[in-house]
Computed example of a mutant assay.
Amino acid sequence: MEAQETQQKEELYSLAKKRMTDFIKTNYKDIERINYTDDYEINPMGGIEINGYLNGNKKKEIWGIYDKGNDEVGSFTVDATRKPECEDKICKY
């Protein structure tokens, strides 16, 4: 793999982590810390799948697919409680 390609993937992963962090902190309560694992995967459509956990607890798993084209987290699983105002809809992040 070329260095430029590796750098592009790392930049996409950084962006994905930032947007996932914004998404989680906006929509969920009691989030002190988000840890991401390095096992991300970029799908053929350009989405990037990211994994991690919350507040230092590896049982509080998070998973999401960041869609760069729409600049949003599309599919996601977050083991946390939604904020009341974000229960029925995704709050803007």
Rank of each mutant, 00 (worst) to 15 (best):
E5S: 05
E5W: 00
T6D: 05
Q7A: 11
Q7F: 08
Q7C: 00
Q7Y: 04
Q8W: 00
Q8S: 06
Q8D: 08
K9T: 03
K9R: 05
K9D: 00
K9G: 00
E10Q: 11
E10K: 07
E10T: 02
E11S: 07
E11Q: 13
L12T: 01
L12Q: 09
L12W: 01
Y13P: 00
Y13Q: 02
L15I: 06
A16G: 04
A16L: 02
K17M: 10
K17E: 12
K18M: 06
K18G: 01
K18V: 01
R19F: 01
R19K: 15
R19I: 06
M20N: 02
M20R: 02
D22W: 06
D22M: 08
D22N: 10
F23A: 02
F23H: 02
I24Q: 02
I24S: 03
I24E: 04
K25R: 14
K25C: 03
K25P: 02
T26A: 02
T26G: 01
T26P: 00
N27I: 04
Y28C: 05
Y28G: 06
K29D: 12
D30S: 15
D30A: 14
I31T: 09
E32Y: 05
E32R: 12
E32V: 03
E32P: 01
R33M: 11
I34S: 11
I34N: 07
Y36V: 10
Y36M: 10
Y36K: 07
Y36W: 05
Y36L: 06
D39M: 05
Y40E: 13
Y40Q: 12
Y40S: 14
E41P: 01
I42Q: 14
I42A: 08
N43G: 02
N43F: 08
N43T: 12
N43V: 12
N43K: 12
M45W: 11
M45H: 10
M45V: 11
G46I: 07
G46K: 10
G46C: 09
G47W: 07
I48A: 04
I48M: 04
I48E: 02
I48K: 03
E49V: 14
I50K: 01
N51L: 10
G52I: 05
G52P: 07
G52Q: 07
L54Q: 09
L54T: 06
L54G: 11
N55S: 10
N55T: 09
N55F: 04
N57I: 09
N57S: 12
N57T: 10
N57E: 14
N57P: 08
N57D: 15
K58E: 15
K58N: 12
K60S: 14
K60L: 15
E61P: 00
I62G: 06
I62C: 08
W63C: 03
I65K: 13
I65S: 13
I65D: 10
Y66S: 08
D67F: 14
D67A: 11
D67Q: 13
K68A: 09
G69P: 03
G69Q: 11
G69N: 13
N70G: 04
N70K: 15
D71M: 13
E72F: 08
V73C: 07
G74F: 10
S75D: 14
F76P: 02
T77F: 11
T77L: 12
T77G: 06
V78W: 02
V78I: 15
V78Y: 05
D79T: 13
D79E: 15
D79R: 12
A80S: 11
A80L: 07
A80W: 03
T81M: 14
R82G: 05
K83N: 07
E85G: 09
E85N: 13
D88W: 04
